[in-house]
Design a protein around this nucleic acid. Structure first.
Length: 564
DNA sequence: TTAGGGTTAG
């Protein structure tokens, strides 16, 4: 197949020059359409990467997939099998922990999947489990069940009762985080109190930061601030400026600059703010489009004898980018230069990304050039943005080329890069390539590339959309093997996607599973499912769903659970 | 470790 390719010197390709120097344009008689051409590095790739070969051989023109036609890359399916538990790599940071036997996690899962109604039942169920508990096993189970606190907490309780095992502070913190994520704050606080009572007094700033962040994420801003104010007295965690920044950051990230500012004013006399404190607040005001307040805070920063730095200015750059006000962006960049501060890779990424979003692709790529002039080195996040922009503007081949090129430029790919490339491939109907990329992630060195829930989202969506039920099953299995727990947004995606495709039985299964995990269905989600069941004349299933919802409304109406 | 992603579509 490759023999048929025609390779010609690249003349006027629109990519930045440096990338193009060693590149050639590859066209093929098989693909007379110029869209099907591909840029490759002929000097360094005598052998094209296999997925590019597949990409070329896979006719993208035949996109229409008939209903229920299914395919699974055989290698992916077998790879899922062979990957069973080979993920212990990089998961125990503290070393010295005995390598658990590969079957342990699987056996635990079997028990946990039997019961997910209450954590007491889970504890009872586990009495028949003869697995030897280790810290790494606990962390893995908590990761795998991070959206199902019943099972996670039941297992956590049971593990603590096992002889020869005591929970580490890391395990406690992970459990606190799961409870916070599932919004079971009552149990979360009980656990923090339990930590305090242990001999070594396990509550640290790490614990409290998780608590504050989860509270803020649920809109419980005042409770987050109170947690900070009580922290030193109740748990012996020092409330210094480092800890204060953690609180500020949680409040700002979860969209309440007001609470952050208020806390700042309240604490000003007792805790000395540092330059990060000011930057967090400036960022918060910028994010809320309160430019005057951001400026005032910058003045206050100077009064406190901290010079605004690249982070300070970048917050302004980002805010004006978001407004689409590139004239002001230039003004800020000019102001930076006058203050002797150079933009860095973060600043450039923001500008490039925003220009791309505003469909000013040429200008966006110009930023890449400018950046090189400034000898600013691109990093993985920068490449991820570049790949995203190119893909969004229809230049998928260029995006794929950048993806290929980055390791040669000495930048290793991270999860975000893979996630971006996978969703780009799905967007351009390169399903098989997307799956190969997922497979590649597991083989990437360094362990920084484990797929997360965002990795799977576009793939799952594609399965629902194209009614590929077999592949959907393989992917769900793949998620479990990689300790990725299905969260609320994934359930929504599955339920809606399956409903739209008329796979209503499957949609019901996910709906019921989500409800068992304590997620509360949104009115519109219920309606969609019920309407679809009605349409199909599935009266019994409809009644089941309706009574399930009714029951949940009756029992859980006062708790702020994750809404699906 | 204070600044950078995407999601989501009728």
């Amino acid at each position: 197949m490759l023999a048929k390719l025609r390779i010609s010197k690249l003349v006027s390709y629109t990519l930045p020059r440096r990338v193009c120097e060693r590149r050639f344009l590859v066209t093929s008689n098989a693909f007379p359409n110029s869209e099907e051409s591909l840029v490759v590095d002929a000097a360094e790739s005598p052998e094209l990467p296999s997925w590019i070969k597949d990409f070329i051989s896979n006719k993208p023109s035949s996109n229409s997939v008939s209903d229920d036609e299914d395919f699974v890359i055989p290698s992916l399916a077998s790879w899922v099998e062979s990957q069973k538990f080979s993920r212990s790599r990089g998961e125990v940071s503290s070393g010295n922990v005995a390598e658990k036997s590969p079957e342990d996690i699987d056996r635990v899962c079997e028990f946990l999947n039997k019961k997910d109604s209450s954590h007491e039942d889970v504890v009872k169920e586990l009495s028949g489990c003869d697995v030897v508990v280790s810290e790494s096993l606990v962390l893995q189970v908590l990761r795998r069940f991070s959206n199902g606190w019943n099972q996670a907490y039941g297992f956590f309780m049971w593990a603590n009762s096992q002889t020869g095992y005591v929970h580490s502070s890391q395990a406690y913190n992970a459990m606190v985080d799961v409870l916070g994520k599932c919004r079971n704050f009552e149990l979360m606080w009980r656990l923090v109190d339990e930590m305090k009572k242990t001999e070594s007094g396990l509550v640290t700033l790490d614990t409290m930061s998780k608590v504050m962040r989860r509270l803020a994420k649920s809109g419980k801003y005042n409770e987050a601030v109170d947690a900070f104010l009580e922290m030193e007295k109740s748990y012996g965690v020092k409330a210094d400026s480092f800890a204060m920044n953690s609180l500020m950051d949680a409040l700002v990230k979860e969209n309440s600059i007001e609470h952050a500012h208020e806390a700042f004013l309240k604490l000003f006399d007792t805790i000395k703010p540092d330059s990060r404190t000011f930057n967090i607040l400036i960022h918060g005001f910028c994010k809320a489009r309160k430019f005057d307040d951001a400026r005032t805070m910058m003045e206050l920063m100077k009064v406190a004898e901290f010079a605004p730095d690249v982070v300070t200015y970048t917050s302004f750059v980002e805010a004006y980018c978001r407004e689409g006000d590139f004239r002001r962006v230039d003004e800020i960049l000019e102001e930076m230069r006058e203050s002797g501060i150079k933009p860095n890779v973060v600043t450039y990424t923001i500008v490039m990304h925003s220009l791309g979003k505003a469909r000013q692709v040429a200008e966006a790529l110009g930023v890449y050039e400018k950046m090189k002039e400034d000898e600013c080195v691109p990093d993985a996040k920068f490449y991820s943005s570049l790949i995203h922009i190119l893909s969004k503007t229809g230049r998928f081949k260029d995006a794929a080329e950048i993806f290929e090129d980055m390791t040669k430029q000495g930048v290793s790919r991270d999860v975000l890069v893979y996630n971006t490339m996978i969703s780009a491939a799905v967007r351009h109907s390169q399903d098989e390539m997307a799956l190969r990329l997922l497979k590649m992630m597991g083989e990437e060195e360094g362990g920084l590339c484990s797929p997360n829930v965002e990795t799977y989202a576009p793939l799952l969506k594609m399965c629902c959309h194209k009614k590929k039920m077999k592949l959907l099953g393989v992917l769900l299995h793949h998620m479990v093997k990689n300790d990725v727990s299905i969260d609320v947004s994934t359930y929504i995606l599955l339920i809606r996607g399956l409903c739209v495709s008329g796979k209503v039985e499957e949609a019901c299964l996910f709906f019921e599973e989500a409800m068992r995990k304590g997620m509360v269905p949104r009115e519109s989600t219920c309606k969609m499912l019920v309407d679809e069941l009605e349409k199909k004349g599935m009266g019994e299933a409809k009644l089941k769903i309706q009574s399930l919802v009714q029951f949940s409304v009756m029992t859980k109406s006062h708790s702020p659970l994750p809404v699906m």
